[in-house]
């Protein structure tokens, strides 16, 4: 295992380093907002723990269809929660795929494969975002 070569200053690695910290804190905050919102909407009597956690990770009505919520379209499927889902998926996908890039590049170092792997991870990131936004807008 070889460490990556990183130059100091305002560059891509530094911006992603800061972004990882900020987005990590943002994800915890968004998770708390999701949990609190679910309880305000009546999760205490209508959800079990896994369903509540699924809503916290991704507050999409499709995530809670197999619960005791009578009509999921009232309250649970609004523009507010759509914006929350988009923020959450953007932070989560970027944080996750950048973390994957960091781990991979710690093992490969400076090599011929680095641009190829970066391109592959970028495509996966785009794919995840497109699928997620399709799911958010279609439900």
């Amino acid at each position: 295992m070889r460490a990556r070569t990183v130059r100091p200053g305002m560059n891509f690695e530094y911006i992603m380093w800061i972004f990882t910290r900020i987005s990590g804190l943002a994800l915890i905050l968004l998770g708390l907002i999701g949990t609190t919102g679910a309880f305000i909407l009546g999760a205490r009597t209508q959800m079990d723990l896994p369903t509540l956690v699924r809503w916290s990770f991704f507050p999409n009505p499709n995530h809670v269809v197999n619960s005791n919520i009578p009509d999921v379209a009232i309250g649970w499927a609004t523009a507010y929660w759509q914006i929350m889902q988009m923020l959450l998926i953007f932070f989560a996908a970027t944080h996750g795929f950048n973390g994957l890039r960091t781990v991979i590049e710690d093992f490969t170092g400076q090599s011929f494969f680095r641009p190829l792997l970066r391109g592959l991870i970028f495509l996966l990131w785009m794919f995840a975002l497109i699928v997620a936004i399709y799911v958010i807008l279609a439900s």
Partner: peptide, 8 residues
């Protein structure tokens, strides 16, 4: 500053 450790 280049950081390059060679550890197996």
């Amino acid at each position: 500053m280049g950081l390059n450790r060679k550890v197996s």
